[in-house]
Design a protein around this nucleic acid. Structure first.
Lengths: 192, 192
DNA sequence: TTTCAGATAGGACAATCGTCCTACTCCTGA
DNA sequence: TCAGGAGTAGGACGATTGTCCTATCTGAAA
């Protein structure tokens, strides 16, 4: 709790609030109230709201990297690693039903705001895309690996959006199962 | 142009701006400047911003109904009608690359704002879902028709989100082709 | 004990927000 | 000709926004 620096507390609060309320709709007052510091004190730690956004994106990038690295340890087989990715939808089900995918919704919002950090936010997508591509390549899909990675990413995004709109957790389970079936069809040479 | 009522002009401007900039981030000043009327004059036509949102959603619902009805005339076969739906991604490509799907991004935003019109906005999703379900039912998929409808909806959403993030129109073409292939596999009894 | 930089609180600021009010200009019907 | 309602313009309102400034506090080094 309080062993974290104020700066880190601000970033974590912003991370959560940007996800739950959106970047533009979250004010300094909201974050300050959450961290319980005065609003003016903010500018000692960050020069602007955009700077906090960049810090939040950096944090998310770092956490995503950590997660992907962990899956490389857990799942010895590329196909299991991809399976882990697909199952985020179930792991984060509760939050997704309420707020959608944190990556997709932030990217969509920044696109509409024409925000300069839009490209930075999309790096999280790129990170997953490249990682998934590597796994499909390891399965022997060569130049089709990237297309397969994008396919998985897109379907995950779609499931997040629709399940959130309809508040339908069964739909998540159903589509995840379908994606895993699809994945098995693409298990060429699991290990050589 | 000017043969439209001021009220309709406001709704159309709001429709466009809510799509391009987001609902929350679009101010009365923006809409007023677009329609070229004074900001204060607004409240003669609408009592609140939420009322404009409801009018915009109603307009979109109406336009969507019109579009679906047209497809029922154009495509004699259910499978062609579903094909028409899938191809919106290509028809609206340019806008989707810039602002994503108008239905999905609005739904996501209203979810984060915890807005009372969220359910209303989702009616556009429901409309498409039921229409697609009807087409799949006509193909003889019985109780699986709704799941297939949701599947198409979700994949379309995912393609919109990802293509917008990566500014990748080839990805749209590629996924649309794949969805059409998938659709052919589900062409049970096209006509009896 | 004094000093001083790091950290915090609280308020001022100009701008903008959604909302509301009033005065003015039309145009139509009697 | 004139009355009256529909439609418009423009500004006032209180609240909130992101940003900035300054006074105060705290804790470690001297």
């Amino acid at each position: 709790m309080s062993d974290k620096t104020t700066r880190d507390q601000i970033i974590e609060a912003a991370d959560r609030l940007f996800y739950q309320q959106g970047f533009d709709h979250t004010s300094f007052a909201d974050i300050a109230a959450f961290v319980k510091i005065s609003r003016g004190n903010f500018y000692y730690h960050f020069k602007s709201k955009d700077e906090i956004l960049d810090a939040v994106i950096a944090l998310r990038l770092q956490n995503t990297k950590k997660m992907l690295k962990q899956w490389e340890k857990d799942g010895a087989q590329p196909i299991d690693r991809i399976g882990s990715f697909i199952h985020i939808l179930i792991t984060n089900q509760a939050k997704i039903l309420l707020y959608g995918c944190p990556v997709g919704t932030l990217s969509s919002e920044l696109a509409k705001l024409d925000h300069k950090s839009h490209a930075e936010a999309n790096q999280i997508f790129s990170l997953c895309r490249n990682w998934l591509g590597k796994q499909f390549a390891a399965l022997g899909h060569g130049d089709k690996a990237d297309a397969l990675a994008m396919h998985i990413l897109a379907r995950s995004q779609g499931v997040a959006t629709l399940s959130s709109a309809f508040q339908d957790d069964k739909f998540i389970a159903q589509e995840v199962a379908q994606m895993c079936d699809w994945l098995q069809l693409h298990a060429k040479n699991s290990t050589t």
